[in-house]
Design a protein around this nucleic acid. Structure first.
Lengths: 221, 221
DNA sequence: CAGTGTGAAGTTGTTCACAGCA
DNA sequence: TGCTGTGAACAACTTCACACTG
């Protein structure tokens, strides 16, 4: 028996590939809006300024099949990507930490098109509790320790300061949340079945400023 | 000829390492505030939930030297990290695209502590032009095509929709900007001396939702 | 023959193993 | 003995090379 019997299902998709998928999707939607019916991997690669082979490999993970000389059917590819990314499913989320970062996220409504909906926000600050940010009410987190399990919320968003993040995480785990999107600059300890993704806002900035410094240092030699 | 002649100076620091630096810095500052004088790599690793060897390797890139059995001097390490990341230098930035994402970023003032200061924002939307977001004035981008070269702005932040991003990039390059922090879901084409960092807001979400979907699929088998 | 699909080679980053040190 | 520091093994991802196909 071949060991790669059904690769697409058994082997996990490399995370870097998953991270590139939204980019393809956004491009393809705009191409569809321009009336394009077929698109080849090299074309996609040129628009996105990346390697054509990588595009082929990435797209193959969605189950897409292209035709030599013609490429992929745009509409079909969009559907496969949306399905792969789970954009067709609706997920509800709680956000904890409605300070500057948290409220910025709430105000940025770009995520609604991905099927994510923040249904409530929580904080400990009496000045914020009771207010409404971008249509989302802010509650006192102390009063809602057993709320989420009843509501079946799948995603928790953490936008608290670093020191509070682990406590909030533990609470979310109790709530029965399945995935955590963490903006706090710490690595969270969670049971293995919980999905965690860290968004380190400072990381990109760090790379930029470190590169700038190196560039300037080189000038001074 | 060997290609690894003088590792420490010629070889760049691995980008993943640079991306982890802000995390160390934030932890160390909080440790210092608690009065801690020395800290070992295993201790740091435990707090951050990561591999101790990796901590040692990462810290070595900043020039830090630790002492066996004692660890690193917290204060010294903080200085080395701040220096490495360029947080001691002040960089001024322009932000283009003052829509929901752009204004969210402006309102989130967490970056000021990194030495980054957004001095002006730009847009094409007549309704936004002339307003002020978190103390930053929004100008009509059409009227400022030759402004930045005179002001020596080093960093450009792009928070426009995907289709506008490349035009804005070209403009920024003309302005003499040295680094671009791109939030638009496209890969920008730039001359090789320009530093570009992409922050794909959707990527983390993509990983989460794809993982959730896989998890659910598994349940259904 | 331009473009897909895929195994192989190459590159980069992580983890291991151990020497050296206080 | 606990920790640093580093070269070497390992794993993950990317790029290459090429067979295949309409």
């Amino acid at each position: 028996m071949k060991k790669d019997a059904d690769k697409s299902k058994i082997m996990g998709v490399p995370e870097p590939s998953v991270r590139r998928m939204p980019k393809y999707l956004i491009l393809l939607r705009s191409m569809r809006d321009k009336g394009l019916v077929n698109i080849s991997a090299p074309q996609i690669a040129q628009h996105l300024n990346m390697d054509p082979t990588q595009v082929v490999k990435d797209l193959s993970y969605t189950g897409a099949r292209g035709r030599p000389k013609i490429g992929y059917a745009v509409e079909e590819l969009i559907n496969l990507l949306e399905d792969f990314l789970g954009y067709n499913k609706k997920y509800e989320a709680f956000l904890v930490g409605a300070g500057s970062l948290g409220s910025a996220l709430l105000r940025y409504q770009g995520f609604t098109q991905t099927g994510l909906k923040v249904v409530a926000a929580f904080d400990t600050d009496k000045n914020i509790i009771g207010t409404e940010i971008a249509g989302v009410k802010v509650f006192d987190i102390e009063k809602f320790r057993d709320l989420a399990s009843r509501l079946h919320i799948t995603i928790g968003i953490i936008t608290t300061p670093a020191h509070a993040a682990q406590n909030v995480t533990d609470l979310m785990v109790c709530w029965g949340i399945k995935a955590i999107w963490n903006f706090a600059p710490v690595s969270l300890k969670v049971p293995s079945h919980i999905i965690v993704q860290d968004t380190q806002m400072y990381s990109n900035l760090a790379v930029i400023m470190n590169s700038l410094k190196q560039y300037e240092d080189k000038q001074n030699i």
